[in-house]
Computed example of a mutant assay.
Amino acid sequence: MIKVSDALMSFRNMVLPEPVFDFWCAELGLLSRRQAAVARAVKVVSETPNTVSIWLKPNANFVGVLPGQHVNVGIEIDGHRFQRSYSVSGVRGRCFRITARKVANGKVSSYLNQYAQRGMRFSLGEVYGDVTVNSFAQKPALFLAGGIGITPIISMLESWSQTMRHQPVQLVYWGKTTQDLVFIERLKNLAQKHSWFELKILETQFLERNADGTPRLLAETSAWFQELKGRLTDFEAFACGSDGFVDQIRERFSPLVNTFQFESFSPLLVAAEAGVPIQVRLTKQNRTVTVPSGVNLLNALERAGVAVSSGCRRGTCNTCSCNKISGITQHQGDRSINEAMASGFKPCTQSALSDISLEM
């Protein structure tokens, strides 16, 4: 007797249109798609009380990802599709791991921490990121991680643990407490196993404070720092964490190393109070929605029921970019105001100050 799934695969290119083929593959729990890249969760691990790791097995349409890169991942929640960008925290053959820390009001991170399970299906989008395992393959590396910023770094370290690496790697890892640090036991095991890897852990709750109350991540008088900075001239440095973390670290370490690269995961802040109603004309959809002025435009559009493809949500991956036809907008980072038409307009970094039209 022929199975339904076997019959469906036989007629893949002969009979069924792509939407029909993809629909029935999804209904039957198959990863096959005509063109779309999708994945199934094959393992779920609770790393800390508010952090979960998910190993994903992609279908043949996925281009693949290197340790250190990011991938846009989509999931359906309550009938709505959401897309987020995650650093890959591990790669094994075609499978890869993403790690999500629960954040306040985070729709996707909260859902994954509560409901992620084997068999859960995800859509896969763009893979991006220039800092990869290959960037430091033949060079001494200094990694500086704050909190969940460890994710791209652990993927590179685990990849190197399977090779005959000779160049030294120094990791300094900051977290509020050791209980908050993800992959801490795995990192300690790597440090014990490999002579090329050194690990320094700093708990920020015990550090001195800056005038604004934030932890002073690095004291010039620290004995470990004095010892470390004397041997960093030839090192390639990479920092990953929040905006505030990266700003402090870059100021201290950038002059000491050969090159300094960084990535930040901090989302742009959404204004606490809504402003006056703004009309957003979406020309491709032939519809107009109302959003408040002065708030993050991507978030506002999603709240208004508009499905917007997005990934990093901070202007890096270009997934949400579109053409702005008219209207006054303000960049939420540097606060610059723009009244001109714009291609490559990124709603995740902008707020609307007047009625606007978007080619969306």
Rank of each mutant, 00 (worst) to 15 (best):
N299K: 13
L353D: 15
D6F: 08
S53K: 01
Q35D: 14
N210E: 15
I201T: 10
E158T: 08
L190R: 04
A26N: 10
L353T: 11
T290P: 02
R40T: 13
V52Q: 04
R12I: 09
W160L: 01
L268W: 08
I77A: 07
F21R: 04
L66H: 13
R101Y: 08
Q205M: 11
G213Y: 04
E273H: 12
V103Q: 07
I201C: 09
I328N: 06
G64L: 05
I54F: 08
L16A: 11
Q205W: 12
I184K: 15
S155N: 10
V306R: 01
R252P: 06
G315Q: 15
S266W: 07
T48K: 11
A223L: 15
L16M: 13
H80K: 15
T204S: 11
A271M: 10
I150H: 07
S110F: 02
R287C: 13
L207H: 07
Q35G: 06
S222K: 02
A274D: 12
F253L: 03
M164Y: 04
V169T: 05
S254Q: 14
L269I: 10
F197I: 00
R121S: 11
L171Y: 02
G244F: 12
S89W: 09
G68Q: 03
K57R: 14
P140S: 04
G149E: 00
S195R: 05
F23N: 06
S109V: 00
Q69Y: 14
E76Y: 06
A36W: 06
C25I: 06
D6C: 07
F23P: 01
G29L: 01
Y173M: 12
L199Y: 03
A300Q: 04
Q192F: 15
I148G: 00
G146C: 00
L256F: 00
P292Q: 07
F21P: 02
W196Y: 06
G244R: 12
I77C: 09
F143D: 02
S321G: 04
A352G: 06
S135H: 10
C320M: 14
G241T: 03
L232S: 08
T132F: 05
Q83D: 14
N113A: 07
S159N: 02
Q138Y: 13
Q192H: 15
G74I: 06
T163R: 07
Q332C: 12
F260S: 12
G344W: 08
R165S: 09
A342P: 04
R101A: 08
D355K: 01
V308C: 04
S242Y: 00
F183H: 03
Q170I: 15
L124N: 01
T204Y: 04
L66M: 15
R303N: 09
V308A: 00
Q205A: 13
I201A: 04
H70V: 09
E76W: 04
D234A: 10
S5T: 13
V108D: 05
L207I: 09
S32M: 03
S5Y: 09
L358Y: 12
M1K: 09
D355A: 10
I249L: 13
F253E: 01
